[in-house]
Design a protein around this nucleic acid. Structure first.
Lengths: 254, 254
DNA sequence: CAGATAAATTGGCCTGACCACCTGATAGCT
DNA sequence: AGCTATCAGGTGGTCAGGCCAATTTATCTG
C-alpha cells in the first residue's frame, strides 16, 4: 500500500505559496506594494518572522523586490512555482533520458574508475547514505541519487563531463512524465535494488576497475529502465505513448 | 564619474553567501550536518532569526536540507547562489571538451547509424557543404561544424542526446582557450583533414554501420585533439597549463 | 543484551522591542 | 509664493528570549 506522504509544510512555505498565487492571479499587480509585514502577519495569523521568511523566498524567486524603509514591491507577474521550468523541453520522455544516461554515464564511470581518489569515494559514500535516509523517510526527493551520479562525474576531473551529468539531471527534474513513472516505481518496492546497485558501483570504482564500473553502471541504469517500463506497461497503458514504450523496450533489450 | 554602489547587503545575505562558499569549498562536505542554528548565530555574532533566514535561502538554492529535530544537512556541493557569478565554467579547457565529445559523440554516432533516415543524411550533406564554404571563405565561424554534429544527434530522435550535443557546443563557444587554439590550428592548415573526416562519417552513417560510424567519429575527434595538442605544445608552452596538456596527451593516446 | 524511558538537542514558531531608512507633511526662511 | 530644512510616522532589518514538537542520545530496567 503506497503510504500517503504527509506534507507538514512549514508555515513560511504556505505563506510563500499563497502570496505567490495572489501575485500570479494579479491580486497584487506589477509594481504594487504589498501590505506591510506587520499587517500581513496579523491578517495571516502568523508571526512577522514567518512572513519575513516567506518574503525571502519570494525575493529569491524573483517575484518581489524589497526596498528598505519603503516596502516590498511586486516585480514580476508570473506565478513562479518551486522550481519554474525555464524551457519547454518538457516533452522529454523517461526512456530518452535513460538511454542518454546509459551512453554518457557508463563511459563516465569507466573513465572515473581510472583516476578516482579517496575523497571522491567518501563523497560517494555520503551520497549513498543520503539516499538511504531519503528512502527511509519516504522522501520524494532524489538529491542523494543526483549527488551520487554527479560525484562520479566529478571524479573524472573533467568539467565538460560534469556539466553533461548536471544537464541530464536537470532535464530529468523537469520531466513530469519521469516524475510520474518514478513515483510509481518507488511506491512499488520496499527497498529499491538501486541502493545495492549504487553500492556495487562504489566498489567497482574503489577497485579502480574501469570495465567493471561501466558494466555495473549499465546494469543499474538498465534496471531503472526496466522498472520504468514494467510500470508504464502495467499502469499507464494509455497515457505513455507507444513510441516511448517502444523506445523503452529497446532500452532494456527485450 | 561612475558612482560607487554602496551595497548595504542584508545580514542574512552575507551569512548565506559565507555558508554557500564554505559548502562549495568542501568545508561542509556533502551529507554533513551544519552546526546548530543557535551555535551558528553565536559564532557569527548574529541573531538566530538571521541565521534562519539564511538557511531558507540555502534551502531554496538546493544546497541544504532541513530535518526537523535533527539538523541541517548539506545536499549539494556546488556553490549555487542568486547573486553569485552565473558560471565560472568558462575556464573549460579544449581537451576537456574533446574528451567529453569523444565519449558522447562516439556513442551517439553508433546509435544514430542504426536509425538514420534519408532526410538526416541530406541535412548532413548540407552541413558539410556549409563547412566547405566557410573554409573557402576563410570564415571563423563553425556553424557548419556545429550543424553537422547536431544533425547526427538529431538522427537519434533522442531529445536528451540532442541536448547533450547542444550543451557541449555551447560550452565550446564559451571557451576562450578553445577559440584561441582552434584559430591557430585553422591558420596552420590549407585544407583541414576534418572535411574528409566528416565525409567518411556521413558514409559510415549512410551504410548504417554503427561500429564504423563510431570509430570514424572517434578518429575525427582524435585528430582534432591531436591538432590542438601539437599547436599548444608549439606555441602556447607557457600559457596552456601543464595539466591541460597532460590531459591532451592522454586524449590522443601518446 | 534488548527494549522502554528520560534527558538533551534541534528546528519551528511566537512575542516584543529597538534601530536605520524612506517618505511625506510641516514649519521656517528667502 | 516658492523653496528648504526638519520632523514624525511607517517600513524593513535585526535582536533577545521563550515555548513547542520532532528527533536523537543517554539512561534505566527487565
Amino acid at each position: 500500500m503506497p503510504v500517503e506522504v504527509i506534507q507538514t509544510k512549514r508555515l513560511f512555505q504556505q505563506v510563500f505559496e499563497q502570496l505567490a498565487e495572489l501575485i500570479g492571479k494579479g491580486e497584487f499587480p506589477l509594481g504594487k506594494r504589498l501590505p506591510a509585514e506587520r499587517d500581513l502577519a496579523r491578517q495571516l495569523g502568523v508571526s512577522r518572522a514567518t512572513v519575513r521568511e516567506a518574503m525571502i523566498a519570494l525575493e529569491l524567486s524573483g517575484l518581489v523586490e524589497v526596498r528598505v524603509g519603503s516596502g516590498i514591491f511586486v516585480v514580476a507577474e508570473r506565478a513562479a512555482g518551486p522550481a519554474l521550468t525555464p524551457q519547454q523541453d518538457l516533452g522529454l520522455g523517461p526512456f530518452e533520458l535513460i538511454e542518454a544516461r546509459r551512453m554518457v554515464e557508463g563511459e563516465i564511470a569507466y573513465f572515473a574508475a581510472q583516476q578516482i581518489q579517496d575523497s571522491d569515494l567518501e563523497t560517494l559514500e555520503a551520497a549513498l547514505r543520503l539516499m538511504e535516509h531519503e528512502h527511509a523517510e519516504g522522501f520524494q526527493s532524489e538529491r542523494g541519487d543526483r549527488a551520487f551520479h554527479l560525484a562520479i562525474a566529478q571524479a573524472t576531473r573533467n568539467n565538460a563531463l560534469i556539466k553533461m551529468v548536471e544537464v541530464l539531471w536537470d532535464l530529468r527534474e523537469a520531466s513530469p512524465m519521469w516524475a510520474k513513472l518514478h513515483e510509481r516505481v518507488r511506491a512499488a518496492q520496499v527497498r529499491p535494488a538501486s541502493l545495492d546497485d549504487h553500492r556495487r558501483i562504489i566498489e567497482a570504482l574503489r577497485q579502480g576497475d574501469p570495465a567493471l564500473a561501466r558494466s555495473t553502471m549499465d546494469v543499474h541504469l538498465r534496471r531503472v529502465a526496466d522498472d520504468l517500463l514494467r510500470i508504464s506497461e502495467a499502469e499507464f497503458a494509455g497515457e505513455v505513448g507507444a513510441e516511448e514504450r517502444q523506445r523503452g523496450r529497446r532500452a532494456v533489450g527485450r
